[in-house]
Design a protein around this nucleic acid. Structure first.
Length: 574
DNA sequence: GCCGTTTTCGGCCCGACTGTTTTCAGTCG
């Protein structure tokens, strides 16, 4: 799949044009194309073959020609010429907060600055102050921006953002001064990584701001005004709070939730209908039409309210206008976790502790899925040990009868040849079997997984692509073949909710659902304190337009067990 | 560079904030 490579080229292309001072709409066309291609769930090569490139919104004749040239030759000649005109170290300068293309251009042309090191040296020597339009404050802002950039590791994992945002919202909502409060931005959209954390509130603004900057976990106050403030929390992440008038709360929530592409589309629609939409409300002339709630705004524009997770301008606005939005799986739908490790293998919690946590979370069932023997580093269990562990589960099921059903599970290793490292005899005695790959992360593993799916006892493939966010790309896979086989063999695909996995990712979910794939949303917890992460998985599923009916563990135990039984019957085993 | 139920040319989302300005440019979300 060449989608990412191509998206990177278009992004860099936009950077170069921006730096060269090209028409901003020209730049935006490349930026949009990059984003579109990066988020595409289908292989761009297949789209090209089928002649569907120009049916993508934002791809016209000229971009199509460039894409085709890239697919044919691996290069785009126009880009090859262009990129040699600008030193590529210069683009790190654009990552400095407060520094944009115009500033970089001046720095480069007047002082020959082409890297972060150059810039730091020039600031020390006081050279920037001599430039027109550069005063002491601006230089100080750049200096602080560099500091911030070097400190931050880039984007925050969603799990970390949700954890911090929930904590702050819970602390603040207890205050009498706070009327309403909500997280917004990409955290609310449950995007797998988040730039900074945005929180929106309404109420007595000065009291709220004061409480916010004085929260116990705040390490540093970056900026504080009467309507907004920015802080760094002890985890090192930036959190912004805005306080808004209550009549505009819905409009502000809509606006600050984004995405940017969704908002641009929405405002264009508003404009065509003779309205103006901004963060204060929907206006006809100077008259406020709607603003108290998001629903009010969308309704006034003749549409249903798209769930925040799908506001990415990938068809949700059209669906909202047609009143055909999908009914997405909800956070409260999950009836049990189907991937949890106990201290029989490499988990830290006992089976009893896991059961108690599952009861606390309101689950109907939970599957204990310890590792199998070949995974020695993770304390994988032998066949005898599994049988002993199962006896303990039987006892606990007696004890917790009527409160929770503990399922005998396993995360069985898929060996390099696609076979499993436990006998069918043992597997047949388990309630739910999850199979996964834990080795050879660079080779194409399609055949290996297809073969595992052919085993009648394998009910789900755990973390199907093997990616770790920000650390390791998934191994190469033919996703469409995989999805087809999963649907055929009644093998579910896991949406692993552990915070650095989220695998399948959102775009894969959307494509898989079209193939009729069933999903399980599970946490891969190794401690009961990880089990809350299920909501990260549900958020990912929702971003992939996944409906409740496609998610096995959004249904009662008997539905789950029927799915297991159906596969065994399909393959003629008991 | 894209796009069209007012347009195949002339638009392209909108406002806040900051810093340098004396009317505005740059950056951000």
């Amino acid at each position: 799949m060449k989608n990412k490579e191509l998206a990177d080229i278009f992004d860099r292309w936009a950077d170069i044009l921006e730096f060269m001072g090209d028409n901003p709409y020209h730049v935006r066309a490349y930026r949009n194309a990059a984003r579109l291609i990066r988020d595409l769930s289908e292989d761009i090569e297949i789209l090209a073959k089928e002649g569907r490139l120009t049916s993508l919104p934002g791809i016209g004749q000229r971009l199509q020609a460039k894409i085709l040239e890239f697919l044919r030759t691996g290069k785009i000649s126009e880009f090859e010429k262009l990129k040699h005109q600008v030193p590529d170290t210069i683009f790190t300068l654009l990552d400095i907060p407060g520094v944009g293309p115009k500033t970089v251009k001046v720095l480069y042309e007047k002082l020959g600055i082409r890297s972060l090191e150059d810039l730091k040296r020039a600031i020390e020597r006081g050279e920037l102050l001599k430039l027109p339009g550069f005063g002491a404050k601006k230089v100080e802002k750049i200096r602080k921006g560099i500091e911030l950039l070097e400190k931050s590791s880039g984007r925050i994992l969603l799990g970390v953002a949700v954890f911090i945002a929930d904590r702050i919202v819970n602390q603040l909502k207890e205050l009498p001064a706070v009327e309403r409060i909500s997280v917004c931005g990409s955290t609310r959209r449950m995007k797998e990584t988040v730039g900074d954390i945005d929180i929106l509130a309404t109420g007595k603004n000065e009291e709220i701001i004061k409480a916010f900057v004085n929260l116990p976990n705040v390490k540093e106050v970056l900026w504080q005004g009467t309507k907004k403030a920015s802080v760094i929390v002890e985890e090192g992440e930036q959190v912004d709070l805005r306080v808004i008038e209550k009549d505009s709360y819905g409009a502000a929530l809509q606006y600050f939730t984004g995405s940017k592409a969704h908002n641009i589309h929405l405002r264009t629609l508003a404009l065509k209908s003779g309205y103006k939409l901004n963060e204060y409300g929907l206006f006809k002339g100077d008259t406020l039409i709607a603003g108290k709630s998001e629903e009010e705004i969308y309704k006034s524009l003749g549409m249903d309210t798209p769930p925040p997770e799908i506001r990415e301008n990938t068809g949700e606005i059209e669906a909202a206008l047609n009143h055909s939005l999908p009914k997405l799986v909800d956070y409260t739908d999950i009836k049990g976790d189907l991937h949890v490790h106990s201290n029989w293998s490499d988990g830290a919690s006992t089976i009893e502790e896991i059961a108690l946590k599952a009861i606390e979370m309101g689950y109907e069932y939970v599957a204990i899925t310890d590792h199998s023997k070949s995974l020695k580093v993770a304390g994988g269990l032998s066949e005898e040990e599994f049988l002993k562990r199962n006896e303990e589960i039987d006892k606990l099921n007696e004890k917790f009868k009527g409160k929770i059903k503990i399922l005998k599970g396993i995360e069985v290793d898929i060996l390099p040849d696609g076979s499993l490292d436990l006998s069918d005899e043992i597997l047949s005695q388990l309630d739910f079997v999850v199979a996964a790959i834990h080795s050879r992360f660079t080779q194409d593993n399609t055949e290996r997984i297809l073969k595992a799916m052919e085993n009648p006892y394998v009910n789900a493939i755990a973390h199907p692509t093997g990616r770790i966010i920000g650390q390791r790309d998934g191994y190469p896979l033919d996703l469409e073949t995989l999805f087809k086989k999963a649907a055929e063999t009644s093998t579910a695909l896991e949406i692993n909710a552990y915070y650095n996995r989220l695998d399948l990712r959102d775009s894969h979910c959307r494509l898989a659902q079209e193939f009729g794939v069933h999903f399980v949303i599970s946490t891969d917890s190794h401690h009961v304190d990880h089990m809350w992460m299920v909501k990260l998985g549900v958020g990912t599923a929702r971003r992939g337009w996944v409906q409740k009916k496609s998610v096995l563990n959004a249904h009662p135990l008997r539905t789950l067990l029927r799915f297991v039984k159906e596969k065994r019957m399909k393959f003629g085993v008991k």
